[in-house]
Design a protein around this nucleic acid. Structure first.
Lengths: 122, 122
DNA sequence: AACTTCAGATTACATTCGTAAACGGTAAAA
DNA sequence: TTTTACCGTTTACGAATGTAATCTGAAGTT
């Protein structure tokens, strides 16, 4: 069962603030979307049904927590993209962005360090 | 108007064989999916409507050609993912795969060369 | 000229998604 | 204790998507 785009915005909020009440989530998403309260509640419920989050009663409300870890979600999404578009490999993606001149100086510096470190400790 | 997952498989075929008849596409996709002929034709029509491909009459059939370039599609999809998950930057994605030990030796070698080249010609 | 075939066009239909309104029960207030 | 408010639950509904069957018209065959 996969997380839709809209649902992933809710997950992002919970990854930032854990746990959160539905009001927290509504408030946070109001900053970046036009979603009404019922919309956010629907998304919370769909995520519950998918076991991507948990809900623990706290008096009259619930505290929602992410069950799915962000890193795992990121990994799944990234791997899917790499598989579909770059034969599952990272270097071709970097090459693509390089060709398009979309690597910032910062990117290049970071990549350099990364590669050096990798080369060393092995 | 965006290209759905199923539609993108049709595009991949057209990027490989350009132009292609619907039969070509059906035959090619039969290797990797269970799709019936009408399914593929529906997808071709939806892509036509989206102007992602063109159709030129050739006797009784059509020759289909991609209008959308693969590199552009790849770029749009990759950018969307980077923006949503890595603040729009490439290096953090590479770092993520590095942490997960998903960089192959080949990746590392290629990245090294890439970075060296980038460092030089500028 | 009538019959058949084949490709594209039209129609179909269940599911997921985005977006939200309406309902209902329990805690708080009067 | 009756009323109100609030929060979660249920229902809604159009658009997109995955998947395909059926219709139609023109081309080929007899």
């Amino acid at each position: 069962m996969s997380i839709s785009d809209a649902e992933s915005l809710v997950m992002e909020v919970l990854w930032e603030k854990n746990p959160a009440t539905s009001d927290d989530v509504v408030a946070e998403l109001a900053k970046t979307t036009d979603w009404q309260e019922p919309t956010v509640k629907t998304l919370l419920n769909r995520l519950l049904k998918k076991s991507a989050i948990s809900a623990e009663r706290d008096g009259r409300r619930y505290l929602y927590r992410p069950l799915l870890k962000r890193a795992d979600y990121v990994h799944a999404a990234s791997t899917t993209l790499l598989d579909r578009l770059f034969n599952g490999r990272v270097a071709p993606l970097v090459a693509h962005f390089s060709e398009r001149r979309k690597l910032t100086k910062k990117d290049i510096a970071e990549l350099k360090r990364l590669i050096e470190d990798l080369d060393h400790d092995r």
